[in-house]
């Protein structure tokens, strides 16, 4: 574990930030901490995600970026703090209570999630994977579903091969199918855990364009985890940086670059020396 002292940047974080002028924020984290045993992964993270923004969260491997995403959808429960999604505190919901579970499910229906390794259903074809959420949560006819599935698959650059099973696909193809599945219902918020890792640069750029296109046409809020600084520069309007469990920088892209925070600088300059240390 990297042990470093990093000041927490106040930039744009904290409840209330970003609410000025526009609608209520999509997501607000207040002082979220999460440990596994004596391993403190998140240490008091606070941030606000504006509705209709594209936030890219950067950070070295193993700093809890995936843990953070999982807290948003209630797959993990933070030890302390609040996770407000459209005003509802996900962290306070008790899954063993039927009523809370219903609330949680109602919130989750507003999310689409691309897992780090795709998490495609092994026993379903590509087609059925993308059709699954539509069959479940909409009244669309099979013909309408077909049209949408094919459209989504075309958008991620997959023509043909709808009847293949995930095991028959390359890693990059699986990821694209998983992205198609995540946006299948055109949800309010799409979470992407490292969408570009494992993709070639051209495919990665195609996916970035798709993200921006979905953002423009549907106003989807994206929260994207990435190692890819080029991707962050291209798609983000907000950039966050997580290191050692702290949110060391968070704010509008131009501001974050202008401030030239050491951790951000190190990340973009690909320097081995700096606040982020590999032990």
């Amino acid at each position: 574990m990297a042990k470093t002292e990093i000041q927490t940047h106040g930039l744009g974080s904290g409840p209330g930030a970003g609410t000025a002028g526009d609608a209520a924020p999509a997501v607000v984290l207040e002082n979220v901490s999460k440990s596994f045993g004596d391993h403190h992964v998140l240490r008091g993270v606070s941030l606000t995600i504006r509705r209709g923004s594209i936030t890219v969260m950067l950070g070295p491997s193993g700093t809890g970026k995936s843990v953070l995403l999982r807290c948003l959808v209630g797959l993990l429960k933070p030890d302390t703090g609040r996770v407000l999604v459209f005003g509802e505190d996900v962290a306070a919901l008790d899954e063993t209570k039927a009523k809370d579970r219903e609330k949680l499910f109602a919130i989750r229906r507003r999310f689409g999630m691309l897992f780090q390794d795709g998490a495609l259903f092994d026993d379903m074809t590509v087609y059925d994977n993308v059709a699954f959420p539509m069959r479940l949560h909409t009244d669309l006819s099979e013909a309408e579903i077909r049209e949408r599935v094919i459209d989504k698959l075309h958008r991620v650059g997959l023509k043909g091969g709808e009847q293949k099973f995930p095991a028959e696909l390359s890693g990059g193809m699986r990821k694209r199918v998983a992205f198609a599945r995540a946006i299948a219902l055109e949800p309010d918020i799409v979470l992407c855990d490292e969408p570009s890792s494992g993709l070639d640069p051209v495919m990665s750029a195609t996916l970035d364009e798709l993200i921006m296109e979905m953002h423009r046409s549907l106003g989807i809020t994206f929260i994207i985890i990435s190692h890819d600084t080029a991707e962050a520069k291209m798609v983000a309007d907000t950039i966050g940086m997580l290191a050692n469990g702290h949110l060391v920088a968070f704010g509008p892209k131009e501001e974050v670059f202008r401030e030239d925070h050491p951790a951000i600088h190190q990340f973009f300059a690909r320097e081995t020396q700096g606040p982020i240390k590999v032990v």
Binding site: R70, L120, L136, H137
Partner: peptide
């Protein structure tokens, strides 16, 4: 177990299933 380690069970959860 395979569905658990490959996060397929989590994917079901996130899809509100």
């Amino acid at each position: 177990a395979n569905m658990r380690i490959s996060e397929q069970i989590d994917a079901f959860e996130v899809m509100a299933v």
